[in-house]
Amino acid sequence: MDWQAHARNLAARVVRAESRWHEPLATTPRHTLVPRWWENVDGQWELRDGASDPERWMHAAYSDRTLVTRVGPLHADDASPDMVTSGLPTSSSTLPGLVVQMYRHAVIADDSEILVTTGSGYGTALACRRLGDKRVTSIDVDPGLVATARERLDALGVHPQLEVRDITGTLPGQYDRIVSTVSVRPVPPSWLAALRPGGRLVTTIAGTGLVLTADKTEDGSAVGRITEDGAGFMRTRHGDDYDRPALDVWETAQHADGEEVTTSRYPLLYVPDSWDVMSMLELEMPGIDHRVRQDGDERTVWMLHPDGSWARATAGGFLDAPTVHQGGPQRLWDVLERIRNRLNREGRLPVYGAQVAITPDGETTLSRGAWSVTL
Rank of each mutant, 00 (worst) to 15 (best):
G296E: 08
L283E: 03
V324R: 00
R338Y: 06
A321P: 03
R348Y: 10
L283T: 02
E284T: 03
R345V: 06
Q330M: 08
S309F: 09
A321N: 08
V292P: 00
M303P: 00
L343D: 14
D307L: 13
N344G: 06
M278V: 03
P329Q: 05
L349K: 07
V335A: 04
S274Y: 05
A321K: 15
P272R: 05
L336W: 00
T314R: 15
A311T: 09
N341A: 10
L268K: 05
A313H: 08
W310Y: 11
W302G: 10
P286S: 04
L343G: 06
E284G: 10
G296F: 06
D289T: 11
G347W: 11
D334Q: 14
S309M: 11
H305D: 14
G316L: 03
H290A: 13
R340N: 05
D276V: 06
L283Y: 09
P272Q: 00
D320V: 03
R293D: 12
R291S: 05
P329C: 08
Q326G: 09
R291H: 13
I339L: 11
E298T: 14
I288S: 04
T323A: 10
D297H: 12
R342M: 06
D307F: 14
R338S: 14
H290F: 14
R299T: 15
L319D: 15
R293M: 13
D307W: 11
A313K: 05
V277H: 02
V277K: 01
E298H: 11
W333A: 11
W333R: 05
P350F: 10
T323V: 15
G317N: 09
R340F: 07
Q294T: 11
A313P: 08
L268T: 06
G308K: 09
S279L: 05
Y270C: 04
L283P: 01
L269N: 09
D295F: 01
R338K: 10
G296D: 09
E337A: 12
L349R: 08
R340P: 02
L332Y: 07
E337P: 00
D273S: 14
A311R: 04
I339H: 04
W275P: 00
S279E: 07
D320N: 10
I339C: 07
L319A: 15
V271P: 01
E284F: 05
G317L: 01
E298I: 02
H290E: 03
N341T: 12
N341G: 04
L336I: 00
M303S: 13
D320T: 12
N341W: 14
Y270R: 02
G308D: 11
E284R: 08
L319Y: 09
E284D: 06
L281S: 02
L304I: 12
V324N: 02
S279H: 04
L281I: 13
W302Y: 14
E298G: 01
G327M: 11
P322K: 10
V277P: 00
G327Y: 12
T300Q: 04
H325Y: 13
